[in-house]
Amino acid sequence: MKIAFYGSSLLSSYWNGAATYYRGLLSDLARYGHRITFYEPDAFDRQQHRDIDPPPYAEVKVYSATLEAMRSVAAEAAGADVVVKASGVGIFDDELLQGVIAASRPEAIRIFWDVDAPATLAEMRSNPDHGLHRAMPELDLVLTYGGGPPVITAYEQFGARRCIPIYNALDPSTHHPVPPEPRFAADLAFLGNRLPDREARVDAFFLDAAIRLPGRRFLLGGSGWESRGLPTNVHHLGHVYTREHNAFNTTPLAVLNIARESMAAVGFSPATRVFEAAGAGACLITDAWDGIELFLEPDKEVLVARDGREVAEHLAALTPVRARQIGEGAKARISADHTYARRGSEVDAILRSEAKRKGTLTPARSVA
Rank of each mutant, 00 (worst) to 15 (best):
W113N: 03
R273T: 06
H49K: 10
V89K: 09
G131I: 06
Y155R: 04
A317D: 08
I285Y: 05
T286D: 01
G329F: 14
E346A: 09
E226Y: 10
N193Q: 08
D337T: 11
Y241N: 02
R134W: 05
A280P: 00
C163Q: 13
G33T: 01
P56H: 00
G224T: 11
T242I: 02
G147W: 12
A102Y: 08
L318S: 02
A69T: 01
V82C: 07
A247Y: 15
R23W: 03
A254H: 05
A349T: 13
A169R: 13
I152F: 15
I326T: 09
S227A: 13
A75Q: 15
I109E: 08
K331N: 03
L195P: 00
D116T: 03
D307E: 04
A189Y: 09
T232I: 02
D197A: 15
A169T: 07
G148F: 07
L284E: 02
R50K: 14
I350R: 10
Y14N: 02
P172E: 04
V100R: 09
E354M: 03
L191G: 14
P180C: 05
H236L: 15
V234E: 01
L207V: 13
Y32P: 01
G222C: 13
Q98F: 06
M124E: 02
A305V: 10
F44L: 04
V240P: 05
R194L: 04
A305R: 08
T242C: 06
F205H: 04
I285S: 10
R162V: 01
V274F: 14
P55T: 00
A154I: 02
F38M: 03
R306N: 08
H239V: 00
Y22P: 00
